[in-house]
Design a protein around this nucleic acid. Structure first.
Length: 427
RNA sequence: GGAGAGGUGCUGGAGUGGCCGAACAGGCAUGACUGGAAAUCAUGUGUAUCCUUACGGAUACCGAGGGUUCGAAUCCCUCCCUCUCCGCCA
């Protein structure tokens, strides 16, 4: 959520910045509602002050034998007026809130305008493998190596699900453990949050109300909103919801492991076979609560950490800065790490590192007390996958495959695989 | 699933219509005392909005939303949440 004060003070500047990611934006109505709101607040305040003052004297006057009926009549009218104004005020505030909640975050200055096509590749690491044999795609590889069972996954969960089996499950777990150890080494605190979250969580993260259809909702009878988290970011942002931290507490660095559940409604893409896009995938997510002035450095730290992990696995990848329309609505700036999937001839996202500025903190009312001024300020929040595994395994099997159909396990994972170095085809 | 209890400030905990933004205690901060500390004493200590250049002022907030009343933490209604016991269960 954006700060209405910022819009009131510099509407043109905000509008210009938002143009990078929106078609058109007009603050005329918003500013009119804002003016009306403040006028009503002032009037209600004065009327209440009068009511409080007059009412407080009633007992004494009654005792003195005064006839208080006329005063009561007058105050009844005042109360009625207050009520009318309050009703109008509530309606105005509802409109303002709805408008503000619908606005995306203001993109950072260096974020390119426009859509995907304007994403800017910042750096590339490693080389595309150039095998001198006929390379298989990951669907065949994970099947032949008996790592993933697609058919039985679909039998259990329906289309868009798969299951890990044997060395596949172990490889998945190895990746997760490797990431977990790395984050603990870097001083991040491990969190295993609930996978089912309430409405307030979705709102703070920016999922709700606009993107509520992207998640799986639970049918529990009442009209209570409960949903399966689409990423553990949605849980982690809510760790400090409605809390005021001390400046000395910041930064707070967490990471969580959860599966991510996503409906992916309408985004079925035939070429994204296998594990590139599913309704459930595993992800380790890093999260930071920082002071505003530290957020930019924190973003670099996060993307750097994620890159280090992909590099340790020896996988060819690149880092892109997303253009404004490709950045999700809550974020100021996003870097993606995209990993090379040879069979697709494409780079696919395995990590997304974003700075949300105070957008999520404002929605979740997460503040800190600035020592110097004693004032409360919104924290800044950042998140980065570190990493999502469902696209790592395809990259590993494709990038590390050998001519005999075997796959060489990246060195760093071997300790987590009982020392195993190579995955062999089972038939 | 059954039964009951309760939601008040940083914490505990009073408060059943006006003197309550809230007793009292604890915590914390500052000052005094001290060689230093403890103890003691004094003062202070929530959030938000609006007005004001500022100093400051006003209003609201006692789980949430409505209602009654000149006036609501306090009375009435609806909802939410937490805890305890029993049952079931990994």
């Amino acid at each position: 959520m954006l700060d209405i004060n910022l819009i009131r003070q510099t509407p043109e500047r905000v509008a210009r910045a938002l143009k990078k990611r929106m078609d058109d934006i007009d603050f005329t109505d918003l500013l009119a509602w804002d003016a009306k709101r403040r006028a009503h607040i002032a009037e209600v305040g004065q009327l209440r002050e009068k009511r409080n003052r007059v009412s407080a004297r009633i007992p004494a006057r009654k005792k003195a034998g005064e006839d208080i009926a006329p005063v009561q009549r007058e105050m009844r009218a005042v109360s009625a007026r207050i009520k009318t104004l309050e009703t109008e005020l509530a309606e105005t505030e509802r409109r303002i809130r709805a408008f503000l909640e619908g606005l995306p975050n203001i993109p950072a200055d260096d974020v390119p305008p426009g859509g995907k096509e304007n994403n800017r590749v910042i750096r590339t690491w490693g080389e595309k493998p150039a095998p001198d044999f006929h390379a298989k795609d990951h669907v065949d590889l994970v099947t032949d190596l008996r790592l993933i069972d697609y058919e039985r996954g679909v039998k259990m969960g329906g289309t868009g699900f798969w299951l890990y089996i044997g060395d596949g499950a172990r490889l998945e777990w190895a990746l997760l453990n490797f990431f977990i150890d790395s984050h603990i080494n870097d001083g991040y605190e491990f969190v295993l949050p609930p996978h089912i979250l309430n409405e307030a969580c979705g709102f703070a993260a920016g999922q709700f109300p606009k993107f509520a259809d992207d998640v799986f909702h639970l049918k529990t009878g009442g009209d209570k909103v409960q949903f399966l988290l689409p990423t553990s970011e949605t849980a982690l942002i809510n760790f400090y919801r409605d809390e005021i931290l001390l400046e000395a507490d910041l930064p707070k660095k967490f990471f969580a492991y959860t599966p991510c559940y996503r409906r992916e409604a309408g985004s079925y893409r035939t070429q994204e076979r296998g594990m590139i896009r599913g309704h459930q995938f595993n992800k380790i997510e890093m999260f930071q609560f920082t002071r505003p002035e530290n957020a930019e450095d924190a973003l670099e730290e996060l993307i750097g950490k994620a890159e280090k992990l992909v590099q340790a696995l020896g996988l060819h990848h690149r880092v892109s800065m997303l253009a404004a329309r490709d950045v999700s609505a809550s974020m100021v700036k996003t870097y993606d790490i995209e990993i090379w999937i040879p069979s697709m001839g494409e780079y696919k996202e395995v990590s997304s590192a974003s700075n949300a500025g105070d957008y999520q903190a404002r929605r979740g009312r997460i503040r800190f007390k600035r020592t110097e001024t004693g004032k409360n300020e919104f924290v800044h929040t950042l998140n980065a996958s570190g990493l999502a595994t469902s696209r790592i395994i395809p990259a590993i099997v494709e990038q590390c495959q050998n001519s005999d159909g075997s796959v060489t396990i990246p060195q760093v994972l071997r300790p987590y695989m009982g020392g195993k170095e190579v995955l062999e085809p089972v038939n």
